[in-house]
Design a protein around this nucleic acid. Structure first.
Length: 898
RNA sequence: GGGCGGAUAGCUCAGCUGGGAGAGCACAGCCCUUACAAGGCUGGGGUCACAGGUUCGAUCCCUGUUCCGCCUACCA
């Protein structure tokens, strides 16, 4: 007995704090360039500073931490760079909301003061998520924590912006963009979420200028925009209208005549009336059609940035204008509809479902809006980025996501990068009020580059927050400086993220990485699932179905939580999370704890395993578990290599609980008490080495409990490292793989199960110690069973065991069969219910008969015998034989029973 | 409209390259057996969505159908 004792149950809380502090203090998370060692680097997808840890972050970070801890233990120079994202619009909104409570808006404060406020906010609350990541056990190199708006990264942003501008890949122009009327800013295409909504389709008739009896009816979902129409389009081949092309209509409510044009792209013959109003300033299709047809008329501006109708539309009837001017779009719609109806232009309305674009930050309905913005010309950047994935320099896991990536990249549109908000990287462009020149510069300007006038203003727009995140893999390593870190750790090894930001982030990192570093930013992109609630719904505060990871951690412990996440990270499926699942793995943690407790109770303080793990004193069980252990090491390693986190979890769970605990710990109880010291020592060695190896295999997934136990093991059992996190990850030892021993254990294990089965069905309490008679099926089985009979005696709870090829089932016994032997359990003190036993036997016989049926039919099929692989046929033949013997024996027993 | 994924035990899901259907939870029975009741042992329960096809053999491969997700798209 050792003096080392564990408490009865695992208590996560204090353990977690203790070891995380220990790891930090020892500097184990920190990495430095070391040219002798191959690097493994990951950059964290920077969470928003506004964020608190939600379950998606927890999954994302856990998977990264598993990889990082695994690689670190595998002796790679491992770096995980953490940081946060300034999250432009999101953060600005949060601070604005906070100010609103004090009845202040940002315009009251002015730009400078407001930004100060945001920084204050960031200082106070921005670190919360980092603290939460630490509770999760994330082994990031915190000394390298970055923020997308810190000095270094801001320099990188400016360098990239100016370079792209100089290369002609950034331009400014007036285009139709998506405008969020609540956030008061432009959005990129992908920042708009489309939602199906019930709306109405309004049919409006436009009288032909030349003959008011002829009317052209158009259908629209947005009648208020008709004031900005510049044309009516019909299909050039439409027999109904083709003669009208070239004529004009009188636009209702205005004094304007607009042309009827033929446009085969815009107009679908089948839909609506076949005639479409063209409103270039309010619809992306119409914008393009306008450009095609009558570019000079394409720019009738109607809405300003408050989504109100402005009174500068040409030719609107004065009384109409008076009513509409200054009204929000929604209100204006009702009014226009009313006026159209009054004046006899509204033909009918229909219900109509169509999708509406909404702001991804605030869910307001976005408005197509014509305005001057900054754009990145993406096509030239996308080409190489597509090639990088095609050629495999970047690989997506699972591979299917590559299609999503290609699909978007091949149809990529220019990226609108300017935002009319204050929080972010201000665009480094200066407008000259004297000569009108735009100066774009790496350094702040006080004078125009063209005319040297001091009368210049910096652009007030800031950059899309995703602009800076696109640079993350190299900006965090010191770029634009050519640092040693950059040379060593770039490209990073893997990126772990979820599919919803493939476009926002992954694609753009690849483009920027290739353009500025001439190398991909990462080799592998592991795309994990989205975490949903039990009902499969996306978690959100408004639904009230959010599972707070910190609450789960408090309740079940970090390790159980992490293990759950890993176990559910099966590729290609969303994860439905629920608290009950975590509880199961909390129990698993406790199981490990107690197995360790058992092991520690069975050794001396100064225990040292045998140098040769297997020697002449090793029992079959010792050899078996060590052999199985090697297989598990291989499984876990290959699963990690292929990002199959759920397989990592399930092979460990299966092995630890159902092989190590259920079988080996029980089997070892005999030999651990053997009078022969060498026998004891051999089993202690197997018990301990297996446990210690399990802990190391498990450490990437369950860092805390493994460290806690590992530190309690006698020094002689755990090598030279001072922490499990810097001890070597297990490597399989092929010399310990012993198929013979694994097979050797089968007869006793199977027979044990048969006897337990009888006990279960006959309701024999565990305290009873019956005798058993075993009839092996062949000579080999007899030999093995005789040699391993103590295993059966102890694991099946028997008092005595009798093994003989020709033994008869004794009277008052119950019988069952494995493929090795037929076992009869004697119940002298209780006797058995003959009828019950007969039923049980018949049930078992029926079961086997079914198998026999299936197999004989299969084997009498000539095609199968001829065409199937030989091994399969042989295996099946053997099985059939075994089944038959089994059935014969059972039938004999039944006969004896009478 | 296009694309992707899913449909396997009451629930949640595994099942990698085709060869007698698995786990966890839940449920039922017997147990406080000296690591663990957050535990042990045992048991019940599935024409692997439907219809065809390929094959000696299909949960797995192919085609089609139905029902669910999700992504994407400018149907006025």
């Amino acid at each position: 007995m050792s003096g080392i004792e564990l408490q009865k149950a695992y208590e996560p809380k204090s353990v977690e704090e203790k070891w995380y502090a220990f790891w930090l203090e020892k500097g184990y998370f920190h990495a430095d360039v070391d040219a002798d060692n191959e690097p493994f680097s990951i950059v964290i997808p920077p969470p928003n500073v506004t964020g608190s840890l939600h379950i998606g972050h927890a999954l994302n970070s856990t998977l990264q931490d598993i990889l990082v801890r695994w690689m670190r233990m595998s002796r790679r120079n491992t770096l995980w760079i953490p940081g946060t994202d300034h999250a432009g619009i999101a953060t600005q909104n949060v601070v604005e909301r906070q100010l609103a409570k004090e009845h202040i808006n940002r315009y009251d404060l002015g730009r400078e003061k407001f930004i100060e406020k945001v920084w204050e906010w960031k200082k106070e609350y921005g670190g919360r998520i980092i603290g939460q990541l630490k509770r999760l056990g994330a082994s990031c190199d915190w000394q390298r924590e970055r923020f997308t708006m810190d000095d270094g990264l801001s320099r990188a942003v400016r360098e990239v912006f100016v370079t792209l501008y100089e290369e002609g890949l950034i331009y400014r122009g007036e285009r139709l963009i998506n405008w969020c009327p609540r956030c008061h800013t432009a959005l990129s295409d992908i920042e708009v979420e489309h939602e199906e909504e019930k709306g109405k389709l309004y049919y409006i008739s436009y009288p032909l200028s030349q003959d008011h009896n002829i009317r052209l009816t158009v259908a629209t979902t947005r009648p208020e925009t008709m004031l900005g129409d510049t044309a009516v389009a019909v299909h050039p081949l439409d027999p109904r209208y083709k003669d009208l092309v070239g004529k004009t209509v009188d636009l209702p409510l205005t004094n304007r005549k607009i042309p009827i044009v033929g446009d085969s792209i815009l107009v679908d013959l089948e839909f609506g009336t076949g005639a479409v109003k063209v409103t270039p300033a309010h619809d992306f299709n119409d914008y393009e059609a306008g450009q095609r047809q009558i570019p000079n008329l394409a720019r009738i501006k109607m809405l300003d940035d408050k989504a109100e109708i402005r009174p500068d539309i040409p030719d609107v009837l004065p009384d109409v204008l008076k009513q509409i001017a200054g009204k929000p779009a929604k209100k204006a719609r009702g009014m226009v509809v009313e006026l159209l109806q009054e004046r006899g232009y509204l033909m009918k309305t229909e219900n109509h479902a169509h999708s509406i674009g909404k702001c991804y930050r605030c869910k307001s309905v976005v408005e197509p809006y014509l305005s001057p913005q900054w754009f990145v010309k993406t096509a030239p950047l996308a080409g190489p980025a597509i090639k990088a994935v095609e050629s495999g320099r970047v690989q997506f896991v699972p591979k299917g996501w590559e299609n999503t990536y290609f699909d978007w990249m091949r149809n990529i549109k220019d990226w609108c990068i300017s935002r009319q908000i204050w929080w972010g990287h201000r665009i480094p462009a200066w407008y000259c009020d004297d000569c009108g020149t735009i100066t774009v510069s790496r350094t702040d300007r006080t004078a125009c580059a063209q005319c040297a006038s001091k009368n210049i203003r910096q652009e007030t727009d800031v950059l899309d927050t995703w602009f800076s995140s696109a640079l993350w893999p190299f900006s965090t390593l010191g770029w634009p400086e050519r640092t040693r870190d950059l040379a060593f750790y770039y490209p990073t090894s893997a990126l772990v993220t979820s599919f919803d930001i493939i476009f926002f982030w992954v694609a753009r990192m690849i483009m920027m990485g290739l353009h500025f570093m001439d190398e991909v930013p990462f080799r592998y992109v592991y795309i994990h699932a989205l975490v949903r609630d039990v009902e499969g719904q996306k978690m959100s505060k408004s639904r009230g179905n959010v599972i707070d990871p910190i609450v789960m951690i408090d309740q079940y412990g970090t390790d159980a939580f992490r293990f759950t996440l890993a176990a559910f990270a099966a590729q290609g499926r969303d994860i439905k999370m629920s608290a009950e699942r975590i509880e199961g793995y909390r129990n698993f943690a406790n199981k490990i704890w107690n197995a360790s407790r058992f092991a520690l109770m069975n050794i001396e303080d100064n225990f040292k395993p045998n140098a040769d793990l297997v020697n002449e004193y090793s029992t079959p069980a010792d050899k078996w578990i060590l052999s199985r252990l090697q297989a598990v090491i291989k499984e876990v390693s290959s699963a990690l290599t292929e990002y199959r986190f759920n397989d990592v979890a399930s092979s460990l769970y299966q092995f630890i609980w159902h092989e190590y605990c259920d079988w080996y710990v029980e089997l070892s109880k005999g030999s651990l008490k053997d009078e022969n010291h060498s026998v004891r020592k051999a089993s202690q060695t197997a018990l301990f080495v297996t446990l210690e190896t399990i802990l190391r295999l498990l450490h990437p997934t369950m860092p805390f409990i493994t460290e806690e136990i590992w530190q309690k093991l006698p020094a002689g059992t755990r090598g030279t490292a001072r922490s499990i996190m810097v001890s070597p990850f297990p490597k399989a030892d092929d010399t310990l793989i012993d198929i013979e021993s694994e097979r050797y254990m089968q007869p006793s294990m199977d027979t044990t199960l048969v006897i337990r089965n009888i006990r279960g069905e006959m309701n024999i309490p565990p305290s009873a110690r019956p005798e058993a008679v075993i009839r092996p099926q062949n000579e080999e089985a007899r030999k093995i069973l005789e040699e391993t009979q103590t295993y059966i005696t102890s694991l099946a709870g028997l008092s005595k065991i009798h093994i003989a090829m020709d033994a008869a089932a004794p009277p008052g016994s119950a019988t069952g069969a494995s493929s090795w032997a037929v076992a009869s359990l004697v119940l002298p003190e209780k006797g058995i219910d003959i009828n019950a036993e007969r039923d049980r036997l018949m049930k078992e016989i029926a079961k086997i008969s079914k198998d026999i049926d299936v197999f004989s039919r299969k084997l009498s099929n000539k095609d199968f015998v001829d065409k199937a692989p030989k091994a399969v046929v042989e295996k099946d033949t053997l099985k059939l034989e075994e089944f038959k013997v089994k059935r014969d024996k059972l039938e004999q027993s039944l006969k004896i029973l009478g």
